[in-house]
Every structure is written in C-alpha cells, then in structure tokens.
Write a protein that binds this DNA or RNA. Structure first.
Lengths: 166, 166
DNA sequence: CTTTGTGCAAACCCTTTGCAAGCAG
DNA sequence: CTGCTTGCAAAGGGTTTGCACAAAG
C-alpha cells in the first residue's frame, strides 16, 4: 500500500481528519494498513457514538478477519492523535466519537431510548470557569451529561445505542 | 446482636443515616451483622469518596476477616437504600460517597493530586433545565465534573484518592 | 530486511456470583 | 431452626497484552 490511507473520493468534510491522521502516522513512523483504513473509514462514516464491539461488528462486514483487538488499538491510536474522544455514559463500557477541534459540546442522554444529543451552552461554560476560579482551581476541562426523557414518538424503541446513568 | 446497628454514641449528625439504614433492613427482612456494622461505620466516618478496595483496607484494620465481596455487597446495599452514590471519575473504578438527600452537589477534581471538591451552583442548574427543555427533553438528572489544577501547597503529593479524567 | 501491525488467546482489572459454612432472628 | 450472610474462589465483562506470523516501508 503505497498511497495514503483513504486517498481519493473522500467526502471533503472529512479531509482534515485523514490529513491529521496521515501526518500523525508519518511523524510517529507508524504504518498504514488495510485494517486501519477499514476501521477508520467506518468510524468516520458512522459519525456517532460507537463502542468498540459495535464498530467491530460493522468492520467485520467488510473484512471478517479484523480482530476486536485491532479495533481497540485503532481507536486508541485515534485518541492519541487527538482525533477521537472516549466517553463512558454507561458504566463499564466506553463509546468513542470523532473529536472535532472546533466543536466542543456536552451530551444529553435519553434514559428511555438511549439517544444521545449534543449541545453547547456558553453561559454554562462561563459559570464553570467562575466556579473553578472561586475555589482556587485552574480549570482545564469538564464533563457535563444531562439525563432525562425525550419526547420522540419513536422513543422507547431502544434503538441500540448507549444508555446513560448519572 | 439484638440491638440496632451503631446504637449509642453516634454523632448526632449521622443519626438520620442509621435510622434510614435500620428501617430499610427491617423492611426488607435483612439482617444486621457485625460486618455490615464495621463497613458502614467506616464508610460514614470517612465521609469522603472511597473506592471499595480502599474501604476494604480500612475495614480490615478493625476486622481482618472481612472480605472484599462483603464490602461491595454492603456498598450496594447502601445504594439500594438510597444512602450512597456511586460515581466513576476514573474509568474502570467506582467511588462511593454518602448520599445526603438535602445536599446536591457537583465535583471539581484536581488532575494533579486527585483531590475532589464539591460545589453547587443554581445558575448552572437552571441553565441545564433550559437547555433540556429547549431540546424537547424532560430533565431528570445530570452529571457535571470539572477538571483542573488546584493551588494547594501540598498538591502533587498524590494523596491516594481518585484521579479524574474527562 | 527491519520494524511495526495483526489475530488469537490469555491476562488484567474491577465487580459480581456460586457455594458451603456461619450466624442473626 | 430457617434463611439471609459471609469468605473464598471462580466467573464475568470490557479492555489490554504477549507472542509468532504477516506485511508495510
């Protein structure tokens, strides 16, 4: 494989992702492999919260020989490259999502159907800064998950996603 | 053991806790045992975030025969009775804390020394309600953890507590 | 060719559970 | 006495790791 991962025909919107990934691989003298390509492509095209097992299932449809360990290793690679975030809404199981540098957000999780929505609220962010400052902390990050019940007609259908718990 | 757990000499401030626990045990036809007494006493007197292993270590100083499984079982009992909350700031490890019905709070975790502080901010809570409402959710709970660096002189001493990660 | 990556299975870590023996009620 | 509890060890569930082989550079 002499060409860059995911060379032509990439959705323009995802170009930055492959660029960052490829230069990360190069810088670290890591190799570009068929398995990594498939895992990353699927992860990227899903563009939602997935756990390793789900992603593995999806990847296997294209390449049945890919092992679960490789999926984990690739997701950890993406984390190291700053391209993916790992969260755990439900205890004992992690979900991964694309890390878009310009798009910070928090999560709102429906306790019935498991749907995960994203939101951003500057007022809350500012208040967090104030609170931390008031307690003598230099704030570097936070995690805010809201839990509740959504009002979708198709809620309760339990659409195979992550269920949250405070 | 014919008397209630932790009968006389209890700090007045903790009375409600034992009252709730004892009536829960009675209602569920559960038994009051030496092990439960020790685990609960130590948990209560620590009055901070502990994981099962830490608590087990502490309990063993008083009663070396108590098993780790019993500590887990007792902590889960307290959860069921609504007397303890389980959190996981660091992935893959839970910490427990006393649940005080009248005292909601969020957490501020120092990434250097692991210190966990608590805070409450009504403005943030109100904004959360608004956000959820705006997205068509009925909010039932939330989790807000702030991560940063504290300015204590004795920070970095790594005082065997939980280290947080967003 | 040298070095990294992969698949598999075993190891890990925290937590829960099955079981025979111990006790509270 | 009855049946909840306990300790131990083994099982579980998600994630990581060791190893020999495969393959990228």
């Amino acid at each position: 494989m002499t060409e860059k991962l995911k060379p032509a025909g990439v959705a323009l919107a995802d170009k930055w992702f492959w660029d960052v990934l490829n230069s990360y691989l190069e810088k670290q003298t890591l190799k570009q492999t068929r398995q990594r390509k498939v895992v990353v492509e699927e992860f990227l095209s899903l563009d939602r919260h997935v756990d390793a097992e789900d992603l593995h299932g999806i990847v296997r449809k294209r390449d049945p020989k890919v092992g679960l360990a490789t999926v984990y290793r690739t997701l950890n690679l993406l984390k190291e490259a700053g391209l993916a975030d790992q969260k755990s809404f439900r205890d004992g199981r992690s979900v991964f999502e694309i890390h878009r540098p310009d798009h910070h957000h928090d999560h709102l999780v429906c306790l019935d159907c498991g749907k995960i929505m994203e939101f951003e609220n500057d007022e809350i962010e500012n208040l967090q800064e104030k609170v931390a400052e008031g307690l003598g902390f230099k704030l570097t990050g936070h995690r805010l998950d809201l839990y509740g019940h959504c009002l979708r007609r198709d809620c309760k259908i339990t659409d195979r996603d992550d269920r949250g718990r405070p």
